[in-house]
Nucleic acid binder design. Structure first.
Length: 288
DNA sequence: AACTGTCCCAACCGCCTTAAT
DNA sequence: TATTAAGGCGGTTGGGACAGT
């Protein structure tokens, strides 16, 4: 019945890896390649090997290889370009670290996750942006009241307006707020209850999950296929596909310009999007 | 020098999905 | 088809490094 266990859990090592363990793992993967972590520990002599008992489960081997030993890892500090790209990708994908890592060659999901929690969060806060929602912290509630200054929102193509329609449920979790509960830098809650706030914001704001379809010039059928439309990967694909990006910076910059295009079809990078990750234009009068 | 607090990151934990039996 | 464990992922934690007192 079922699979046989890869190792005896009671006899596995935990904690920091030794150089010897690392070397055995590297040697094995150099010869046999990645994959089949299940059989690796025994084959690599990491499991029940004498004279030194080095006991690691396949899961631990995989983690060690992916996050630390892989030869294609970049190491070193993140560049400004990488910072911005991570911020842009996070605004689209949320805490999908593996997807974000997939767009940053040489970086691991664990590395990006750590870097986000230790650096970028603070960076966004210092810019006055909520690291969960990527919206301006102080204007979030005010902006939710749909004050468009001249009394009407910026013009959007009809198909895009449909995509931006809020869901019909009265209270729905913000899809961009599914991140960890570890953050402690939250602003103090105002008098209003959280549910009331969610309701109010949700009533007034575009559905961010849907608004991610940043592909104004694709046909409706290719942009919104029901089977794939809701996955983070498909959103990213939709966002990325029309442009042959040549660098992280151009990729990130183009993403912002796309946001502008939602409103005015202009290829110019608007100043509001530059400073507020494009949410600005939906919440605040452009000329105020 | 010793202590304390903070930062950082490697590694672990637990859950969900996929695949083997 | 049911069962079971591997694989993969995001969240969390432990401990070393460092700075300040």
């Amino acid at each position: 019945m079922g699979r046989s266990p890869c190792c005896e859990k009671a006899h596995t090592n935990k904690g920091a890896w030794t150089k010897e363990e690392d070397q055995r793992l590297i040697d094995y993967i150099r010869i046999h390649g990645e994959g089949c972590w299940r059989s690796l520990p025994k084959a690599a002599g990491l499991y029940f090997s004498l004279p030194v008992w080095l006991l690691r489960c396949g899961k631990s081997c995989r983690l060690r290889w992916i996050n630390y030993l892989r030869p294609d890892l970049k190491r070193g500090n993140f560049t400004e370009e990488e910072d911005e790209l991570i911020i842009k990708l996070h605004s689209l994908l949320g805490n999908k670290w593996s997807l974000i890592a997939g767009r940053l060659p040489g970086r691991t999901d664990n590395e990006i996750k750590n870097y986000w929690n230790t650096h970028i969060k603070r960076k966004l806060i210092s810019r006055g942006l909520d690291p969960h929602t990527h919206r301006p912290i102080n204007t979030a509630v005010k902006a939710s009241r749909l004050d468009f200054g001249n009394g009407s929102p910026p013009a959007l193509p009809v198909a895009q307006i449909n995509l931006l329609k809020p869901k019909t449920e009265s209270i729905v979790e913000d899809p961009n707020c599914t991140s960890s509960g570890t953050t402690t830098e939250e602003d103090p809650q105002p008098q209003q209850s959280q549910k009331q706030q969610q309701f109010q914001i949700h009533q007034a704001q575009p559905n961010l999950e849907l608004s991610i379809g940043l592909v104004p010039f694709q046909s409706e059928s290719t942009r919104w296929s029901p089977s794939s439309a809701n996955t983070a990967e498909s959103k990213l694909q939709q966002w990325r596909s029309p442009f042959p990006y040549t660098s992280a910076a151009s990729m990130a910059a183009k993403a912002v310009c796309l946001c502008c295009q939602l409103g005015n079809q202009s290829s110019e990078l608007c100043i509001n999007c530059q400073t507020t990750n494009w949410f600005y234009r939906f919440h605040t009068p452009l000329n105020s």
